Amino acid sequence: MRLAIGFVTGLLFGFGLLLAGMTSPDKVRAFLDIAGAWDPSLAFVMGGAVMTAMPLFALARRRAKPVAGALFDRPSTTMIDRKLVIGSLTFGIGWGLAGICPGPALVALAIVPSQTLAFVIPMIAGLMVSAAWRRSASGSGVEALQH
């Protein structure tokens, strides 16, 4: 059941990204270009997503457990630390430079692989390097940087 829900949710999310134009680097760059030819349409997409998610998160908070699964996967902390800020800045800079973020990149990979591989391959490499760094840092006293 959990796999089926994840699959359908992923398809719906991917379709929404396509419909909103989030898989188009040109559209994303136009949204980020507030001093030039600004296209505010993605702000409406984000606003619609927030308005849809807010009541659903409120409903989920009232439940003892998720529909498909034993426990909710909630963050262990809400603290804003150096790791979160650096990660957010890195993500934002990459999004601004490339005009695409990981979710839409995977959707675009299925549609225009020749144009998207130049982003997805380094993205996967970065994820692998980050995971290896976290594994190696966990036993070397660097864990203080991670918390």
Rank of each mutant, 00 (worst) to 15 (best):
A118K: 14
T116Y: 12
F13K: 02
I34Y: 14
G87K: 02
G36C: 10
P55T: 06
Q115P: 01
V112C: 00
S130M: 13
F7K: 02
L3D: 08
L109Y: 11
S140L: 12
G16Q: 06
L89D: 01
P75H: 10
A132F: 15
I124Y: 14
T78V: 04
R134D: 08
F57V: 10
A53P: 06
S114T: 09
D26C: 03
A144K: 13
L42E: 11
F13E: 01
R63Y: 00
R2L: 12
G103V: 09
G94E: 00
R135H: 12
V45Q: 05
T77E: 11
D33P: 06
V45M: 08
S136H: 12
A110Q: 12
G47M: 09
M79T: 07
G48E: 10
P104H: 01
S76H: 14
V129Y: 13
R2T: 11
V50N: 04
S136D: 09
G99D: 05
G47W: 05
T90I: 13
A125T: 07
L3N: 09
A132I: 11
L18R: 15
A49N: 03
D81F: 01
A110N: 08
S136M: 15
W133H: 15
L84C: 00
L109H: 05
L56Q: 10
L3F: 15
G21R: 07
T78L: 06
V107W: 04
F57T: 08
M128N: 11
L17M: 10
A58C: 04
A144L: 12
A49F: 14
S140I: 09
I34N: 06
R74C: 00
A53T: 12
L17I: 02
A131H: 13
S88V: 07
A132L: 14
M123G: 05
R2W: 05
D73Y: 00
A118F: 14
M79I: 03
F31A: 11
V45W: 14
F31G: 00
L127E: 11
F7M: 14
L89G: 09
G126M: 08
D81I: 05
V67M: 10
T90S: 01
S136G: 07
T52E: 02
M22S: 14
D26T: 10
L145P: 04
R63S: 07
I121Q: 06
A144D: 11
P75M: 09
G16M: 12
L18S: 13
T78S: 11
D81G: 10
A49K: 02
G99Q: 08
K65L: 03
A144W: 14
A60H: 02
A144P: 01
W38M: 08
S114A: 15
M1D: 08
A144E: 13
M22N: 04
A98H: 04
R82I: 06
F7I: 09
G92P: 03
L59E: 06
R63P: 00
T23K: 04
R62H: 03
D73A: 07
M46G: 12
W95I: 02
M79V: 06
L89V: 12
